[in-house]
C-alpha cells in the first residue's frame, strides 16, 4: 500500500504537470505566436535569369554608343557591356 500511495502521487503529479504544460504551451502559442516564415522560394526565383544565347540581339538605343564607335577590350569590358554586345563582336574583342 505504501508503494501504491507513492505511485499514485507520481501519477497525479504527472497528470497535473501535463495539464499545466499544455495550458502554458497553448497560452504561448496564442499570445506569442511564432514569427511568420516566408514561403519556400521557387526554383525560378533562386536561379539567375540567363539571357537566351540564341535570341536575336536587341537593337541598341540611338543615344548609346554603338559597338563600332567604342570597341571593347579585355581590360575595359564590363559585365553590362559584354551582355549588350552581339556574340560576333565578343569573339572579335577577345581574339577568339
Amino acid at each position: 500500500m505504501k508503494t501504491m500511495r507513492y505511485r499514485i502521487r507520481v501519477l497525479t503529479l504527472a497528470l497535473v504537470c501535463g495539464l499545466l504544460a499544455v495550458i502554458l504551451w497553448t497560452g504561448k502559442s496564442v499570445w506569442f505566436p511564432a514569427p511568420e516564415t516566408s514561403p519556400i522560394p521557387s526554383a525560378e526565383s533562386l536561379s539567375p535569369v540567363l539571357p537566351d544565347p540564341w535570341a536575336e540581339p536587341t537593337p541598341f538605343p540611338s543615344s548609346s554608343p554603338s559597338a563600332e564607335e567604342t570597341p571593347l577590350s579585355a581590360e575595359t569590358a564590363t559585365p553590362s557591356a559584354v551582355e549588350n554586345q552581339p556574340p560576333e563582336a565578343l569573339f572579335d574583342t577577345f581574339g577568339l
Binding site: I8, R9, L11, T12, V16, L20
Partner: peptide, 8 residues
C-alpha cells in the same frame, strides 16, 4: 485540476 488533486 483541483478535482484531480481531491481524487488523489
Amino acid at each position: 485540476m483541483l478535482l484531480l488533486i481531491r481524487g488523489a
